[in-house]
Write a protein that binds this DNA or RNA. Structure first.
Lengths: 153, 153
DNA sequence: AGACAATAAATGTTTTGACATTAAATGTAT
DNA sequence: ATACATTTAATGTCAAAACATTTATTGTCT
């Protein structure tokens, strides 16, 4: 379904406007797909994201601030996300001996197990992207990088 | 800044995973830009979106359900968004004579004026997308459509 | 006509996001 | 050493999103 059909709009101001609209629409579409896929695991996309980041750092611990820097939405509240995941025993949180302001966050065994299951359903869901060739996928990704060159954040 | 730098992640599972991550990241980036640009007008991106939809339909009125169908995020609550915009006199809402369940929503003169101003700052912000050629922009947009072909929503 | 399903919008409730503020610990300059 | 700024994480607060439910009206079938 073209973006024109999806939002029932025939005309766009210019190609850039059309791209902007489509970008946001498609991202929402992807996020909703993920949300649905993760619901069975009682994980929000952001919680899933944090777990993946922690697994990437494993066995090294991460600080909350370091998690934040790697998140897709940097304005989100990593502290409370860690709280949620801790309550589910998906990670451990210990105060850091060398800097008592900071905390060391590490994914737990249970976190690993849940992530492994979740990865499978996410992979299935991600197959939507396989409508493009690998080259096209990387090309789009590069162009997205180009878009953001204008202004950093 | 490449997506690798942006989220401090060197490796991705495959080109598709990288694209998915970049898509969501770039959409968030765009949304935050818009949010900042619209703050001066006390409009959220979604409220702005609704006003633009209503302007597109003008002089015809729209039902809440029709607005919803054209929104970028279809799970958002159009009813309450209309409430907010009504409180600011940016639109009018009258119950529809032919179907008393429905309401007719029309953008107001004041809504037109605000939108005209907001459009200008959004246009400036949207110039980030001009790092691509018009052909590239349309090409990316087409590929986003392709991605969503897998499953509708 | 009456019963029941379908549709439109609004509302209630709970969770999450945005944003500022606070609290504690550390770094730095005099 | 003291004062002050900076960093780190947590918290408070208010607005917005998510999701189910409700209310009113219309459509449909017998």
């Amino acid at each position: 379904m073209s973006i024109e059909e999806a939002i029932k709009q025939k005309k766009f101001v210019n190609p850039y406007h059309k791209l902007g609209v489509n970008l946001i629409y498609t991202s929402n579409w992807l996020m909703h797909q993920q949300q649905e896929a993760l619901r069975a695991f009682d994980l929000s996309p952001q919680q899933y994201n944090v777990l993946r980041i922690l697994r990437g750092a494993f066995p090294l611990p991460m600080r909350v601030s370091a998690i934040c820097e790697r998140m897709l939405d940097k304005t989100s509240n990593a502290s409370r996300l860690v709280d949620k995941l801790l309550a589910k025993n998906l990670l451990t949180r210990k105060s850091c001996p060398s800097d008592r302001r900071a905390v060391n966050v590490v994914i737990s065994e249970e976190g690993f197990r849940l992530l492994q299951e979740a990865d499978q359903v996410i992979a299935v869901q991600e197959e939507a992207l396989h409508n493009l060739t690998p080259e096209e996928a990387l090309s789009v990704s590069d162009m997205l990088d180009t878009i953001r060159q204008a202004n950093s954040r």
